[in-house]
């Protein structure tokens, strides 16, 4: 398993505490981290960068997680970018997508992200 050094993770999360903690955790692990607090910010960000992995919450303000995921899967530039869904409601997660249920076990989340990125 390759190390995360220099790999870019985008964390899309509206809960400030979670988003900022995850940013710290991923940075501690050696990832470069970009964050978005809602779906709109996420799309703006992803228009500019192509991350190695996206950690995506489903319940988001402005533009919902489903729509963000749909855009990622239809944009040819981003279609290969892995997505890990982190949500309180697993039934809303798209089929076949790696899922980490909230409240997340941090170790489990890091394992899943490492495998994907």
């Amino acid at each position: 398993m390759s190390g995360p050094a220099g790999k870019l993770v985008v964390v899309v999360e509206d809960e400030d505490e979670i988003r900022e903690t995850l940013k710290d955790v991923f940075e501690d692990e050696g990832y470069a981290v970009a964050v978005a607090r809602d779906g709109g910010e996420a799309l703006t960000l992803l228009a500019q960068i192509r991350p190695h992995v996206v950690v995506l919450d489903m319940n988001l303000p402005v533009i919902n997680g489903d729509a963000v995921y749909a855009m990622l899967r239809t944009d040819p530039r981003l279609v290969g970018v892995p997505v890990v869904v982190s949500t309180t409601d697993p039934s809303r997660a798209p089929a076949g997508v790696p899922l980490v249920r909230k409240p997340a076990n941090l170790k489990h989340l890091l394992d899943v992200v490492r495998r994907c990125s």
Binding site: T21, P103, K107
Partner: peptide, 21 residues
């Protein structure tokens, strides 16, 4: 229950995990 309560729980849990690490 589904969202509003679990989000702070998630934040607490993530924070606790982070502390452990």
């Amino acid at each position: 229950l589904g969202h509003d309560l679990r989000n702070p729980l998630s934040a607490i849990s993530t924070g606790a995990h982070y502390l452990l690490r």
